[in-house]
Structures are given as C-alpha cells and as structure tokens.
Amino acid sequence: MKHASFIAVEGPIGAGKTTLTTMLAAELGLPVIKEIVEENPFLGKFYQNMDDWSFQLEMFFLCNRYKQLEDTVLEYIDKGKAVISDYHIYKNLIFGERTLKGTKRDKYREIYHVLTDDLPKPNIILYIRADLDTLLTRIAKRGRSFEAEMDNAYLQQLIEDYDSAMASLAVTEPNTVILAIDGNQFDFVENPQHFAEIASQVKELLT
C-alpha cells in the first residue's frame, strides 16, 4: 500500500455493514473498528418512542464513535496503518437529521461538528445499497429484538436519506472514493464469488 487507507463500510440498517467489514478485514489483513450498537441502552426505548428517546440515543452513538475514531487516529492512521470500519462518522448526521427536531437538532449539529470536524475522514467508502424488502429480510434473520419495533416507513426513509448523504459526500469529500454495492444483487455472505468481486475492487483501490 502506498499510503494508509481508511475504509468505511456504510448503508442503512440491515445492509450487512458489519458482516462485510469483518470479511474484508480477514481477507485483507486489516484491523477493524466496529461500532457499538446493542450496547446502547436507549435502543429499545427509542424504537418504542422515537420522540422521547432520540436525543439520548444519538448522543450515545456520537460520543462512542468519536472515542473510537479518536483512538483510531492514534493507533492506526497516524502511524501509517490502513484500517477498516463498519461506519462513517457522517452517519450520525444522517440519523440525527431524521430523528431530532427543533432545538435538540440544532444542539446536536453543533456538538457533532465540535467533536468530528478534525477527525480523519475515510478515503474509501463502500456503500451497500438495498431496497426495503432486502433489508427487512436481513433484519429478521439476525433477530435483534429491539429492531422488531422498527417502523417500515422509518427504514424506507433511511434508504432515501443514505442515497442523499452519499451524493452529498461525493461533492463535499471529492478525494473520497465511493464504491456502491448493490445489496439486492450481491449476496457476499452466501455467494463466495460475489464477495471475491468486492474484495478484488477494494484491493485495486489499496494498491
């Protein structure tokens, strides 16, 4: 590798981000950064009542991801080592803009920028895009109890929000390569050839 790369795997809930990240980390011999999800104590309450628990939920995620990426700078990026993560810190704005309202959203935006503006940004994003039926199938398969409460309309809106966010990042972060993966057609878990194609494309970007 000519330089240290920071790879982020992104996509809406159920896209397979962590699975693909883990597989690629093993294939490429890279350290992996995984976001904390189930450890968030507000998740179950959030899916039952989004308005009451959205700020607590989003702040927990933001602070934990900030800490993870701050450590990543010290441990990997600043030492010239490539690393792969199953999220981009920008996802906090994707979710925050959707779940927060009024002054809480304004406060969250301010805190987000204070914490993240000087963090390293991925120079490679693997964006797994899938339609609602595909995401629902994968969510049901992994069987997280708190996700059973999720509104399908919320998930559909996230799909659209992610499309908009990736289009925005393509403009605001022009040095970042965004590799789109069709999650409806590519089953990188069950089909080794599909995974091999994705891994091959990533290897090309790293050379």
Rank of each mutant, 00 (worst) to 15 (best):
A8C: 12
T207N: 11
L136Q: 13
I198K: 03
I84R: 02
R129A: 05
F195A: 04
I111P: 01
Q201I: 07
Y66F: 15
N175D: 15
V202Y: 01
E97L: 13
A148V: 12
A130F: 10
M50K: 15
T137R: 14
F61G: 02
E35P: 05
R138D: 07
L100Y: 04
W53T: 06
L28Y: 06
E149P: 00
L136G: 03
L126N: 01
I7C: 04
A82N: 11
A199M: 07
E204C: 05
T72R: 06
K34F: 06
A82Q: 06
Y154L: 13
A170H: 08
S145Q: 12
I198G: 00
Y76W: 14
E75N: 15
A170Y: 00
L136W: 04
F146V: 09
P192V: 13
S168N: 10
V32F: 02
L126Y: 03
F188W: 13
T137C: 08
E39T: 12
G14P: 05
L119R: 03
K79G: 05
F60D: 03
S54E: 02
I128D: 00
Q201G: 02
D78S: 15
N123H: 08
V37M: 03
I124V: 15
D131F: 13
K81T: 08
V9C: 04
I33F: 03
G143C: 06
Y112R: 04
K79P: 04
D151I: 08
L205N: 02
